[in-house]
Computed example of a mutant assay.
Amino acid sequence: MKKIAVLGSTGSIGTQTLDVISRQPEDFEVVGLAAGNNVTLLLEQVHQFKPQWVSVANNALAEQVRAEVPTGVRVVYGESGLTEIAGHSGANYVVCALVGSLGLTSTLAAIEAGADIGLANKETLVTAGHLVMQKAKDKGVSILPVDSEHSAIFQCLNGESPKAIQRLMLTASGGSFRDLNHEQLKNVTVEDALKHPNWSMGAKVTIDSATMANKGLEVIEAHWLFDLPYDQIDVVLHPESIVHSMVEFIDTSVMAQLGNPDMRVPIQYALTYPERKASPASALDLITKGTLHFREMDLKRYPCLRLAYEAGRSGGTSTTVFNAANEVAVARFLKGEISFLAIEEIIEKVLSQHTSIASPSLEAILDTDAWARLEASAIH
């Protein structure tokens, strides 16, 4: 039985992870749950799954939770609480479903403790891929991708030699504004941006999908997960989100993983790998779908993706800056402080002010992250 801690349990990926777990109680035991501010949902999860460890955003919320959970449940809070659950809850499998760079230190703590990682937090590898992958290798820990695109590539590469890979092709829906040109994005609203055509996701990821920053983060994550140079990682527009990603091999064969848009499928695969089990998702009917469409990615239309490639090729702390500046810019857009197009402008300005540090330490990464956030907050 896998003893599982879910970091980000009240978010989109977290709730779907717990849905998958609830259908297979003989295989999984939830030992830790970490949430932010959604105490109401967290308490429901605690009473259903009966974890020994619970974490929330701050001390005030922790006091509220302590009063309502069974005796013996350890309640912690803040970033140190995440690290405690990841590294000390007795979990042998940690699902990192946190949003943003918050997942880095807790993921490192889980790896240090010898737990396998179900990684839905792409920012962890974007921010410190070289440290995370090396520590996982040193500890003999598996990092299993939860994102649908990386799960698709992972499945396509099963049993294949790395030498046979020609290129990876990540598919992108195009997000909320895929039918608008760049000029038409000047006056789009937060409400417009949050209407993703295919997926139900949290606000930050949905905005990232609209700017294509999310795909940029996925390109950088793929670089670390599959140990391939950026020149062998492409992005293809695919509006239907049926082909979740593809791999082209040196003999020109292309393997793809298909399915209806349902995150419970890649989540379950990451939890049960190498086994496959029956899924609650609806089966794909290609006859009903009829036609699938693919288009070349336009980096002029999606500057955030171009900036992600540039940051990735620059290496070092450049990807840390890309991620941090994006997080701040998206938060400012969601608050109504800046326009939609200002997101890409802020990222580019902060990156232009940064001199990358090659092979940075964790301390250097955290310092760079803090610097980039201050810079992104100050741009008007």
Rank of each mutant, 00 (worst) to 15 (best):
V54Y: 06
T17G: 04
A270T: 11
I220H: 03
V141E: 06
A152R: 01
E363H: 09
A128K: 00
L341V: 13
A91P: 11
I365R: 09
M201V: 10
T288G: 13
L108H: 10
T124A: 12
A136H: 05
M201R: 05
P274C: 09
A324G: 02
I4P: 04
S176A: 15
L292T: 06
T272S: 14
G315A: 08
L168E: 11
N187H: 12
Q353C: 11
F333R: 02
A256L: 04
C304T: 12
N38P: 04
R74V: 15
A283T: 13
A364E: 15
L366C: 02
L108R: 09
K204R: 14
V39F: 00
S209C: 14
S209A: 13
I165Y: 01
L125S: 12
L228Y: 03
N121D: 10
V54I: 10
G118D: 05
T288M: 11
G72P: 10
I233R: 09
A358V: 13
N38H: 12
S55H: 03
H150M: 05
I85G: 01
Y93G: 00
I153Y: 10
G202Q: 08
E191K: 14
A60L: 12
E375I: 13
K277V: 14
A57V: 11
A136I: 01
L82T: 07
G8E: 12
M1W: 02
H244L: 07
H130C: 06
K277T: 13
G8D: 13
G316T: 09
E275M: 03
K289Q: 13
N214T: 09
L185R: 15
H238C: 09
N92F: 00
L43Y: 06
G290S: 07
K122A: 05
S253L: 06
G259Q: 11
V6T: 02
N121R: 00
T71S: 13
K137Y: 05
D227M: 01
P70G: 07
Y309I: 08
S377C: 05
S245W: 11
L362H: 09
L341K: 14
P266K: 02
K215Y: 06
Q64W: 04
E29R: 14
I347K: 00
T368G: 11
L7G: 04
D298Y: 07
V75P: 06
F333H: 01
A5T: 07
E296W: 08
G216I: 04
